[in-house]
């Protein structure tokens, strides 16, 4: 029924390497991401499942401790690796860099306050967390892009995921300004120096500018990848309820504004017909009735974008087998 039907979509876009999942909290993004990764793994392709969630979602899902341990082989299935990033480390690198720079600024100063307190505060700034996440994501994309056939990212909750990607643009503006400021600052330094040649040399090797430029370059590459429909696909997950649908809709329009390609919508937790029929309590009946209304709504609003339906399971999805089941349904389940 839809061009996006997962299997078809993947076959038509064989070069897609990066998958992202997004949607309202609690709709099953992590599981969907895992299912996508596992799908490719079962096809004999090397897949990496990367979680940027600040909570240990992958560890919980697979019952295998991966938190902050780098890339780990996921046991029980071939070709699948997982990584759960602890951005604290990244933040502490930021802290070190920053403190070094502030200290070098105050080289001659005899000041009665300890500037390290400021450095601590500066790096506890929430912005660091966000940039660190984005950084980590691009790092994984750029560093491991070549070693895996497919990388699936499980981003944090909707809005943050979108901002994370949107960041590539916002961040770019900010970075450009930063680079410009830094350049201005450096030229001022040269102007005000007496050892001009030497300072010029130093300025050329300025680690901060180099960092910023590197960051900018990284950012550019990431943006390029993110907006390349042949390499990146963004899969949204929703459930047949008003709020999650509204969120996905909003999300899609935002993502499109950022030139990020949409790779389909998964509709999760669809109550299977037989489950509804076998049950005569109001719950199932009403839910099923309500669901069909929402499914119509999905058809109407997202129609062609829908790439998979996944049924509601009586128990929570977990472990390689549970996800394999999810994966299977993702490919074949049809609520009609």
């Amino acid at each position: 029924m839809s061009d996006f039907k997962f299997k078809d979509f993947v076959e038509r876009h064989p070069n897609i390497k990066f998958f992202f999942t997004g949607g309202k909290g609690g709709v099953g993004k992590t599981v969907s991401a895992a299912a996508i990764a596992q799908y490719f793994a079962s096809q004999g392709r090397k897949a990496l499942l990367a979680s940027l969630n600040p909570i240990h979602s992958l560890s919980t899902l697979y019952g295998q401790d991966m938190w902050g341990k780098g890339i780990q082989k996921i046991e029980g299935i071939d070709n699948l690796w997982g990584v759960e990033v602890d951005i604290k480390e990244k933040i502490s690198t930021y802290r070190d860099q920053l403190s070094e720079r502030i200290t070098s600024f105050l080289k001659w100063a005899d000041i009665p306050v300890d500037p390290s307190a400021f450095i601590d505060i500066a790096v506890t700034n929430p912005a660091f967390e966000e940039s660190a996440q984005f950084d980590t994501m691009t790092d994984i994309m750029l560093e491991h892009g070549d070693s895996y056939d497919v990388i699936v990212f499980d981003c944090a909750a909707v809005a943050n995921a979108i901002r994370l990607l949107g960041l590539s643009k916002i961040y770019d503006l900010w970075l450009s300004r930063m680079i410009e400021s830094r350049k201005e600052a450096l030229s001022l330094r040269v102007q005000l120096s007496f050892r001009r040649d030497r300072v010029m040399e130093e300025v050329k090797r300025d680690p901060m500018l180099a960092d910023l430029l590197r960051q900018h370059e990284k950012n550019r590459k990431a943006k390029e990848i993110l907006s390349d429909a042949e390499r990146t696909a963004f899969v949204f997950v929703t459930i047949p309820l008003a709020l999650p649908i509204a969120v996905v809709q909003r999300f899609i329009s935002m993502v499109r504004a950022f030139d990020i390609p949409v790779g389909g919508v998964f509709v999760n937790r669809v109550i299977p017909q037989e489950a509804a029929e076998s049950d005569s309590t109001d719950y199932m009946k009403n839910s099923y009735l309500q669901q069909s209304r929402y499914l119509d709504m999905i058809q109407e609003k997202l129609g062609d974008l829908v790439s998979a339906y996944v049924p509601l399971y009586p128990t929570e999805v977990a472990g390689v087998d549970g996800i394999a089941k999810f994966c299977d349904d993702m490919l074949n389940f049809n609520p009609e």
Binding site: I102, A122, M178, S181, R182, A185
Partner: peptide, 12 residues
């Protein structure tokens, strides 16, 4: 105002 000098202290 560190970011004015290109030092990303990211002040809020």
């Amino acid at each position: 105002l560190g970011d004015m000098l290109g030092i990303p202290i990211l002040p809020p």
